[in-house]
Design a protein around this nucleic acid. Sequence first.
DNA 1: TTGTACGCGTTATCAG
DNA 2: CTGATAACGCGTACAA
Lengths: 340, 340
Amino acid sequence: MPASIEDVAKLANVSISTVSRVINRRKLVNEATCQRVEAAIRELRYRPNAFARGLMLRKSGIVGLVLPDLHGGFYSEVIRGANSQAREMGHNLLLSSALPGDDAESWLAAIGQHGLLDGLAVMVSDTLATGIGPTLAALHLPIVVLDDEIEGVEHDAVIIDQRQGALAMMKHLVTDCRARRIFFVGGPETNIDTQARFKAYRDVLRKSGHKFHKEDVYYLDFTYDSAYRLAIEQVSDWAGEHHCVFAANDEMAAGIIAGAIAKKFSVPHDLGVVGFDDTRVAQMTNPLLTTVHVPMARMGANAIELLCQRIEDPEKLPARVSLEAELVVRDSCGCRRSHA
Amino acid sequence: MPASIEDVAKLANVSISTVSRVINRRKLVNEATCQRVEAAIRELRYRPNAFARGLMLRKSGIVGLVLPDLHGGFYSEVIRGANSQAREMGHNLLLSSALPGDDAESWLAAIGQHGLLDGLAVMVSDTLATGIGPTLAALHLPIVVLDDEIEGVEHDAVIIDQRQGALAMMKHLVTDCRARRIFFVGGPETNIDTQARFKAYRDVLRKSGHKFHKEDVYYLDFTYDSAYRLAIEQVSDWAGEHHCVFAANDEMAAGIIAGAIAKKFSVPHDLGVVGFDDTRVAQMTNPLLTTVHVPMARMGANAIELLCQRIEDPEKLPARVSLEAELVVRDSCGCRRSHA
DNA sequence: TTGTACGCGTTATCAG
DNA sequence: CTGATAACGCGTACAA
């Protein structure tokens, strides 16, 4: 139904190759005929058929972004960064996220098998999904991995220097806030971010002469609600002078603050609470949340940038960019209280 | 480089047509040959070329989702619903959002012109973009419009019954909360949601014998920060017995609550504050936010569902599904105070 | 500078 | 049940 290149050629009284040249490398064609062809293109509202073109060029202009989840302000920002970068590089963004019931393989297949993608950005954040390397390799696609590295595929990577960020937070708690006891509330135990943050927690605890108690560590699911409920239960045990909760993300930190307040405890006076990520909620809590800023949009943007670069030049050496995570001291940790 | 259907055919000692049949309508082929072909497929790791296939079928299995923005918990939920529905219907989701500098046409072109899409779900929420109808029509694609209807294209539509929701809220404020004065804080004045909510605000005000003051209406940009700043400035004027602010979304409501509290006013005692959308922040404020629940994920899911149905059956009559928006009474409006 | 002819990998038609 | 063969729309050597 839509006009083909042949229709344009006929109307302009030229051959299809000429039309093709006008579309692609207009340099090699006479000015007059060029005009004629363009007029015909406009008249017929001609648009090259993307399938036929892809068949020749072996490119679709589409890059995939695969996320483990879509809940919360974190992924939203990653997507935002990826979207704008993709646009800037002249590509489109195919988005896919795991669904609750998905196993790592099947949902990746859902997008990867597609065959129209020029490349794939995959965010992996659970050690359970660590075996997807070969699956990814089988795609024979430029791959960039977000937030981790994967065995079994050559790929670019964008990672967050979580350890530095978490260390900075813990040192801040121990040194500046003079925390005497720190609780850790993580996401799922198999989540790599949770693991990285936990390790920093434990290491700083030990190095600073604090005792590490296994009972001070909790694993939840990154949600506000679960953290709220936990806080309701535990806050009376947690509370104490220079006691503090290190939550593995802002949502949980917000839930803990709310739970503590619901139980008539004051944050940070009775209990400090800090988070991680610096999503929007971190500026919506009362008190304002001390947290670690993770450049989420930049992570998404960098991933797409790397991906597009590699699509252009497949021989490029795999890159690995590491993004800084920066401590953001606000009011929920209680150190400003000390100064007052 | 990857194996083609011909390679498979040779290896299995059959013709390419047979291979094609095995892939698509396996019924019409002998069991033994079928096995042979499948073995060959596995051995060569054969996957049909999506471009060639699309060239014949005129289908890519990709549907587009175009949003005006990606900030905040609202769009995030729409995307989530769209993603899961797309998966369920065996399609992939191409996502695109306007960038800050975009004019309505260019960014729509960025995705729509692509030519690989089977259909397009477009969310339009600003009257400034109302003229894109012809642009959409020129795409000759199945179109579904979210949150509005557009002149100049035949399309399915998924809309939220904002008016009912906003009316319910206003009636609640006037009747149950006995509000004496209600302020309205909208998003951009050209935003259609803001307009719908504002009309309900004004209508109920008038019908209930309240005076409508133009000065009681503010237009912001839907963000927490702008609302926070406004509240800091205005809260001392706003505050009063049975006074209330009706914010056009939850983020702004949260900002107003925070601003009021920062100014030492109590919500809802000195000032009621209610929102709209029932995003996650509505359950993170203190007091919990009274708001209107908008089924965001369902909106995204329904849009994709309609789209896929129409792709399957282009003759289908355009549908228009309207989703209910439901009042959610929590603590920030002050009516529970009255009962206490 | 322009045109011819072929190939990209599939599916569909129609004959066997 | 199976196999030729013709599209599908475009890019590109190669020839003119």
